[in-house]
Amino acid sequence: MAVDVMATPAEHSPRRALRWFGMPVFLAVVGLALYAYVSAQDLDSIEQRTLNAARLTDRVIEHLQLAALSTLIVIVIAVPLGILATRRGARFVAPVVLVLGNLGQAIPSLGLITLVVLLAGVGFKSIVFGLVAYSALPILRNTMVGLQQVDQTLVKSARGMGLSGWQTLTRIELPLAVPVILAGVRTALIINIGTATLSTFFGVQALGYVIFQGIQLDRTPVLVVGAVMASGLALLVDYLAGVVEELLTPRGL
């Protein structure tokens, strides 16, 4: 019997190291390069005003607030909806939601947020509202897909052993759907970080503000700092989300 035990092969350690440390090292290098680049520049007064640590920190904080808040709200709304849509009796909803969602994907983020702002007014709240509308689909879809792809024989087993419907959902179906749901959360988070850069047009000064200042005032250092910081932030958040995903995935999968 000992022969047919299937052990998971240990990953090669260099590749594993690259997977865990590659991105942080890359980001650190980019950060240092950016710092060196800016330090080497002779900054004029406009550039100095934008490119100081305190102001940039504020931009990053606003950016993160927008992305985090909207993602949280999306999770709270879309996960329960996704669960409901896969319950017996509401299953006919699922294909409708997916088709509508796919159509919705064709709507450009810039257009959608501008429309929301036009209807709800300029400011933090309406931007969050716009972000929520735009990023709901990945979580909703992944929750539904994640639950649907749970092996139905496991559900049958669970029910056959006497777990109630609720117990089956919370102990079997949801834990098994977690990796897929988390992938959706990660996608939504990245969409929100990306779309939040557009918030500068609607009165919130996230990192997009720095980029757009750079474009409008034709100041390359400002533009580069804004673009690199926004990209770095997105990559960092994506990396952290990946780590969380790994940690929250139930063992044994």
Partner: peptide, 29 residues
């Protein structure tokens, strides 16, 4: 549900819960 806890049940696909250890699987009921 109470009835099923009094009846052992095995299906062809076995249906072991992949995120449970062997001990946790056995301990379910």
């Amino acid at each position: 549900d109470a009835l099923r806890r009094r009846i052992g049940y095995v299906i062809q696909q076995i249906g072991l819960f992949p995120h449970f250890t062997v001990a946790e699987n056995i301990a379910t009921v």
